[in-house]
Design a protein around this nucleic acid. Sequence first.
DNA 1: ATCGAACGATACTGGACGGTATCATATGGG
DNA 2: CCCATATGATACCGTCCAGTATCGTTCGAT
Lengths: 201, 201
Amino acid sequence: MTSTTARPGRVAKLPPRERILDAAEELFQNEGIRQVSVQAIADRAETTKMAIYRHFTTKDALVAEWLRIVAAGYQDAFDRAETDHPGQPREQILALARFIADGLPAISHRGCPFINSLAELPDRSHPARQVIDQHKARQAGRLTGMCAEAGLPDPEQTAAEITFVLEGAQVSTQNGSIEHAGERLLKFVEGILDRHPLDAP
Amino acid sequence: MTSTTARPGRVAKLPPRERILDAAEELFQNEGIRQVSVQAIADRAETTKMAIYRHFTTKDALVAEWLRIVAAGYQDAFDRAETDHPGQPREQILALARFIADGLPAISHRGCPFINSLAELPDRSHPARQVIDQHKARQAGRLTGMCAEAGLPDPEQTAAEITFVLEGAQVSTQNGSIEHAGERLLKFVEGILDRHPLDAP
DNA sequence: ATCGAACGATACTGGACGGTATCATATGGG
DNA sequence: CCCATATGATACCGTCCAGTATCGTTCGAT
């Protein structure tokens, strides 16, 4: 019963900072950054605007923190791909494609947080931009490494191709121009990897 | 000398409606929709806010009109691809890829207007959304038609793949994660088409 | 010359929003 | 038991902005 911390009125409530981040994630993702007011985040987090400004210096800082969490999720996907398929770079790449493909239905009519944020934050000096830039660079590096490890002839080109495909699948899902984007995405990536068979032990 | 209409003080000034649309194109593209105020558009168009509201019922209507013009530009690219390479669907597709690839440097750090607008306008009832949806559907249809005409075994799949690639190249250029995106894009699309040779006379 | 429509400039309204100040209220460790 | 700290609630400020009203001016057609 009496847990050491957090014994709220009814349901176990998370501490305010996490509630705020959960609410921000939900609202930023579904309604955009600029459209969502700090007050709206506070309402959804069942707290107040003041509480938000106690944990985050500014709205922009909250946005950056949100994207940092999203980026960490993608990093986890990379890590899992590597630990689940050690020494099998092609399987790792396919696992990443599956991760994106599986996420498409959830994204549905609202797209990739990074793509959308970039559109909403043209100012290159915005704190969130550093998060995005770092994440994209790291992601590109890891993917290129996987392609090189897979013995593909031109790792940079193949990594670029896979990046195009993954990003494009998310965009096309968002604008609804492609049916069965997930399946098509997987089929496509498999085809790219099969162009240069080499993996078999 | 004395042209029939428009004899402005110094430089030949376009009529206000076109100046407004030019200014809107410039600002919406480079700074985003929500960030740009009607006043800012008026300033850049060397006119006044009032003049804008004489030509467009609302800011949203101006956004929609802007996207209509952008969509027409893409339609023109499709038309040119067809008339420049009649009966050669593979050349038509390559011409489209070249059109996108050539546009990448201009886009550079700011991305595709449709992708960005979608991010900034989550409200599906926004007038601009109809423009985007129609455009995307028409574009997908035409591309699928080209793929079918090219005798590719699975036109829907191939059209989806090419769409992924074209969209992804624009996104990747925007976030700066890929070097030489234009060249890589063309190489990629050529590879896709060459997977099923059939075109030669 | 004149009339009307389009254009330009300025001021205003009403609302939304980021951020702050100030109050009261828990809460948990000493 | 008590006090520092985190939290909650509310009111407020300055600013920005979409959209409107009203004025005067230009300019082309008749």
